[in-house]
């Protein structure tokens, strides 16, 4: 039984990965838009770290005062956030088309259905991380933490993808509507903006700073960013991995509960 559950999960995962791969309109924007945004921001704000260092002697963008290094993790996070919504919209599509009901009526384990669906998101997240590392390297960004530090990034990205994908799936199961899942897009955007992603929280003020400082994304981003800007640090790496990991566990739990109540309610 365990063997067959694994086989089923793998089969469903493969379907989900292939599905995403065959829809370039899903993954191309999640690669392209963060990069465009990064190009824009690095040209608009590139001088800022130097000016702050010169005028006030502070280095909120890292010891090298390089905005592109700072931006790296923001771009990565942005791509993963938006790309992993697709897992949820795909599931909602399955629900709308009736494919989901067909799966549920087979003896496939419920968890396999969900994990299978989310695997595509997680894989996309990890691949995105690797692609972004390559591109940022080409544009002169460096990971101070070396190979160990660099490894933290795709792992965190995959976990974040799982978390966001899980939340999107829970929404999909609850609403069964592609539109509702895609309607969460602005919420993600707001969550990302009110974090340390694009600007250091130490330079913010008031309530905005308070919210951004306590945003779980900030914990994760700062942990990842530490590997890039300062060097490998186990504690920071744990933050980078555990925060999205915990979110992912929560999201998948929420998914299972939602699924159970959906199945019970009919």
């Amino acid at each position: 039984m365990a063997a067959s559950t694994l086989a089923q999960t793998v089969a469903l995962s493969r379907r989900s990965v292939v599905n995403i791969w065959r829809q370039p309109q899903v993954w191309v924007p999640s690669l392209l838009f963060p990069l465009l945004f990064a190009a824009l921001n690095s040209a608009a704000l590139g001088k800022v770290p130097g000016q702050l260092a010169d005028r006030f002697g502070i280095h909120p963008f890292g010891p090298n005062d390089r905005f592109v290094d700072f931006l790296f993790v923001a771009t990565l996070t942005q791509g993963v956030l938006f790309g992993s919504l697709s897992g949820g919209s795909e599931l909602a599509q399955d629900i709308e088309s009736g494919f989901f009901d067909r799966l549920v009526t087979t003896p496939v384990a419920r968890a396999s259905i969900l994990v299978g669906r989310l695997a595509g998101s997680a894989a996309l997240g990890a691949v995105q991380a690797l692609v972004f590392i390559g591109i940022f390297f080409a544009f002169g960004a460096r990971v101070a933490g070396g190979a160990a530090g660099a490894l933290v990034l795709p792992v965190a990205a995959a976990l974040l993808a799982l978390a966001i994908g899980g939340l999107a799936c829970a929404m999909a199961i609850r609403t069964g509507s592609v539109e509702a899942v895609q309607g969460a897009f602005p919420l993600l955007f707001i969550t990302l903006f009110v974090s340390s992603a694009f600007f250091p929280t130490v330079l913010m003020k008031g309530w905005y700073r308070a919210v951004a400082t306590h945003n779980p994304l900030t914990y994760m981003i700062d942990g990842m960013r530490h590997q890039v800007l300062y060097g490998f640090d186990a504690g920071q790496a744990a933050r980078a991995v555990l925060v999205p990991g915990a979110l992912a566990a929560l999201a998948i739990g929420l998914c299972l509960v939602t699924l159970r109540s959906r199945l019970a309610s009919r």
Binding site: V48, Q51, L52, P60, L203, M204, Y208
Partner: peptide
């Protein structure tokens, strides 16, 4: 809200 909140620190960069 987002821009003035996030980029408040640009005052220091003479923006």
């Amino acid at each position: 809200l987002a821009f003035s909140g996030s980029f408040n620190g640009l005052r220091g960069a003479n923006a």
